[in-house]
């Protein structure tokens, strides 16, 4: 997994609530057996018309946001399915940070496994960043994970919360499986105890 430390990039506004995983990456693109290559179909149904042409007023099609690395959106972002294709598509497009007032549980989890930082902020602060983001390519925002801060184009700084373990993994690009395998003895011990107590499992 790629590390996440500090990022300065363009923030794109997507002022909608309940952005679901079918919007982020529609099911016809889940047939891949790879993790990469999904960026071109990110938000496919909002981004392209029936003939596959770009819909010019969709935010990621606008010249100012084509290289956006940060997405600012509404409540319950990422609701719906468990498909990790959603964060894979965001990552493949180049998005490394999503900011919203709330996230759906599985999506939130999946982001951390792929080097994407999801940030929960109160509605007022999201509204402020949404305004900043609406200013196009001037909307350069810096997200510093170590410091847990977001600095806007006008110099104002917002702090955010993040689980310390997840922060540690993201900062160091750590592989969860590797970390867990270090605890193999604990798993072995548990497994032996459970097998005695619940032999039918």
């Amino acid at each position: 997994m790629e590390k996440f430390t500090k990022l300065t990039g363009i923030a794109a506004p997507l002022p909608m609530m309940n952005v679901d995983t079918d919007m982020i990456i529609p099911k016809q693109f889940l047939k891949t057996i790879a993790r990469t290559g999904l960026g071109k179909n990110l938000f496919d149904e909002m981004r392209y018309d029936d003939n596959g042409n770009e819909i010019s007023d969709f935010v990621l099609n606008k010249p100012a946001y084509r290289n956006a690395q940060i997405l600012v959106s509404g409540d319950n972002f990422g609701c719906g399915s468990s498909r990790e294709h959603a964060p894979w598509a965001l990552l493949d497009f180049g998005i490394r940070v999503v900011i919203a007032p709330s996230f759906a549980d599985i999506f939130y989890n999946n982001c951390f496994k792929n080097g994407i930082l999801p940030i929960v902020l109160p509605q007022e602060q999201v509204d402020m960043l949404m305004d900043d983001a609406a200013r196009g390519s001037n909307a350069t925002v810096t997200v510093d994970l170590e410091e847990q801060t977001i600095s806007g184009p006008d110099g104002g700084t917002i702090s955010f919360d993040v689980d310390p373990f997840r922060k540690h993994c993201l900062l160091n690009g750590l592989d969860d499986i590797g970390l867990t395998l270090e605890k193999a003895a604990a798993i072995d011990a548990f497994e032996a105890k459970a097998a005695a107590e619940r032999p039918w499992v």
Binding site: R35, G80, S81, S82, R83, E84, P87, I106, N109, N110, K113, N114, D176, I177, T180, L181, A184, I187
Partner: peptide, 29 residues
């Protein structure tokens, strides 16, 4: 690796959906 894993909760089982990285994690550990 499917959000509707919640279905199995009907049996009094703790059942939840996970992403693909977690599928790999469960397979391995």
């Amino acid at each position: 690796g499917d959000s509707h894993t919640a279905t199995h909760g009907a049996f009094g089982a703790l059942a939840h959906g996970i992403g693909t990285s977690e599928v790999e994690h469960v397979l391995a550990t």
